[in-house]
Design a protein around this nucleic acid. Structure first.
Lengths: 399, 399
DNA sequence: CCTATTTTGTTTTCACCTATTACAAATCAT
DNA sequence: ATGATTTGTAATAGGTGAAAACAAAATAGG
């Protein structure tokens, strides 16, 4: 079944002008994803001739989006050394924010995906009232942009909550106390920034980041799952992030994996996050919610790292519950890789055999090997994903 | 989050020639999906000018893919009456097959989606050995093609089993006794047909058909679920069928919804199809697998239709188990519509309130109303879907 | 050190596609 | 009948990448 859609997507070209836009986007997109590339290589990839590439690259450099230079190190082989085209980063960058309960990360990410040195992490307990939170965020953004000589190409924000696709409205973010907050619009007002502003769910954006820069490179179909207090996820299909109708696709935490399980705050029973979330893990470990959950978790992980049998057993005990949900996701999505973040990362590292074993048992299709990989980007995932979404948004709106 | 992919898809254009191919595809795709359209309207839709449309339409008519005619009924309004462009069907058609255990449907579907009158349903018990089955299918195809004066644009085949995307290999179809059968290739050999041959899973293809021609029209994100002996499904995202890495995406029958449930033939326990499949329903109804399951089912449905309370109660009893799986799918995919086929259709019709009620309880996001719709195409779904996949494949390979 | 070879960049010419513009045709409103 | 309106047609123009010829810069080999 090699079915492409009948009505081809609208992004692309009908007239010569949009044809050129498309080729420019393709080129810049490749530079962003794969870094410095020779002109000839670009031609091989895009199918364009050298002369066309020359012309297009000239436009990109004129616009300050790319640079050309002779090869930094001597090339092997005979002929004339190629010109290497690189994405610019210092002057062509996006601003990325990752909002969390007690942390706001802000970073400058250049084309090519490099986290520029100006990036910083600031710990700002956000005020309860969303309006004030917006003010705080706007101030942080202004401080970053005013320091720079050029304004960013786009901005991306990761939020732990439900974000409506398209308009960047945070429908609800229980941990932040936000409801129906038009974050993209407010930030645009609060900063006077005219370019694209994208807001997204942190897990979806982390999935995007892992796909492009982390454990999911060169993998067109993957599932990312991160377990924390809640369980979030994101799915990449054919190199694209699954959004669903409203942008909520990927809410896997409330997948019911055990109807006989514990009650969930969502009103249901046996949701996956009641089985493999932070509280479930601590419950298994016999640590009955002490003062600081994070500290308890860190201790548990370090004990497992030190091969203490009780801690290892805790993770092993969680592997079956994790496998049930993962098997479901694998059957549904047929990914070539599953990336595990948050608590599932130590679960994979310290109880990998048990997890894989449970999956083997549960899955209907042992023919297909699916790789289980630990997430590579850790806590930076959401911010890097916000940057990637911002870049994509800039590319989509180019010219 | 309005992120489009960075490296834009490869289907489209880099040079002027492929630009034209793209526009031709767009035009023909629109005609196929939406039927006869005036030239001016086509221009509005595609953004092309009247002269460009004229030129493109001329090529389509020359190739025998479209026809132009004056308006059949007088138009309202003033100016010169427009020329109406229609997809041809009699001379531009695809061949579609739907293979099942005791039935093989074969049909001719014209551009525009009309099931041509030459279409036929033939009941042919397929022989046990796959090789012979291929021979039977090839013969049926040859009979259809030889009768026609022009050969089909493409062929599509729906199979109750796992089909690898890309090469059309049936990995396994337990009910047919097939394993690793290169069906697309064999049919190409057996019929001498040179055009595209696509093979797909029947539920995925039915989902495609419902999307284009049935209960899922004008809905870009939908989930289709059909319960029978097994439970199959298909997902449409952004107007495209989800395939996953290998083509197996959508195997929702073995989603574990009740770890404490019955054993499943797949080796697992509590798979969704052990909860809502044919056997589960008959078990609930107290009909302990009599000779003919289909007859028993038909009786049950007709009793429910006649409002017999016991039959209604059977469907009501199944609604909760159905809702668990549906809630999971809704949380995962955020569709705007869920289409229910097979046994889930009567469940919706006769126990709709219970089903919706159970969903309300289970779902984390009551903000988002999701429509539940009965499938419209019934048993023709897989065949019509095969036709749609064939058309898409023809369009993708045009020129 | 010089030359042949190879690879890459540049320039020119050309073919293709759609936009633009002007004009013709067909219908309705008055 | 006449003008307004909408649609189709034809001719010209602008923009895009391809193709081909040429120039430049390196290596390999004597």
């Amino acid at each position: 079944m090699s079915e492409d859609n009948v009505t081809t997507s609208t992004t692309q070209g009908r007239d010569p002008a949009s044809l050129r836009r498309h080729n420019l986007r393709t080129l810049l997109g490749h530079l962003h994803l794969h870094g410095a590339t020779s002109r000839v290589r670009l031609g091989e990839i895009t199918g364009l001739t050298r002369s066309a590439i020359a012309d297009l690259v000239a436009e990109l450099t004129e616009r300050g989006l790319a640079t050309e230079a002779g090869p930094s190190q001597p090339q092997p082989g005979r002929g004339r050394p190629p010109l290497i085209v690189s994405p610019r980063d210092e002057s062509a960058y996006v601003l990325a924010l990752a909002v969390d309960v007690d942390t706001v990360r802000i970073g400058r990410v250049g084309l090519g995906g490099t986290l520029l040195r100006e990036s910083a992490t600031q710990y700002v307990p956000l005020p309860e009232r969303p309006e004030e939170a917006v003010t705080v965020l706007s101030r942080m953004i202004r401080r970053e942009t005013e320091a720079a000589e050029v304004s960013p190409l786009a901005m991306g924000v990761a939020v732990p909550g439900l974000v409506r696709a398209g308009d960047g409205v945070v429908t609800r973010a229980p941990n932040l106390g936000w409801r129906e907050l038009a974050l993209a619009e407010r930030l645009r007002e609060g900063t006077g920034f005219a370019g694209p502003v994208v807001v997204g769910n942190e897990a979806r954006l982390a999935a995007l980041a892992e796909h492009r820069r982390g454990a999911g490179r060169e993998c067109a179909d993957l599932v990312y799952v991160s377990a924390g207090v809640g369980v979030g996820g994101g799915v990449i299909t054919r190199d694209r992030l699954l959004t669903g109708n409203t942008g909520y696709a990927g809410e896997i935490g409330h997948m019911v994996t055990n109807p006989a399980g514990h009650a969930c705050h969502c009103g249901g029973r046996g949701c996956w996050e009641t089985e493999i979330g932070t509280d479930a893990l601590l419950r298994r470990a016999g640590m009955v919610t002490p003062g600081d959950r994070n500290a308890a978790l860190a201790e548990l992980v370090s004990r497992a790292h030190g091969s203490e049998s009780e801690a290892l057993e805790t993770f092993r005990g969680m592997s079956h519950a994790a496998a049930v949900g993962l098997a479901n996701l694998i059957n549904i999505f047929d990914p070539c890789r599953v990336i595990l973040g948050g608590l599932l990362r130590p679960t994979l590292l310290y109880a990998g055999d048990e997890l894989r074993g449970a999956l083997e048992e549960l899955r209907g299709l042992p023919e297909l090997p699916v790789e289980l990989c630990p997430a590579e980007l850790g806590e930076q995932g959401p911010m890097l994903g916000a940057a990637e979404a911002a870049v994509s948004s800039f590319l989509a709106g180019m010219e």
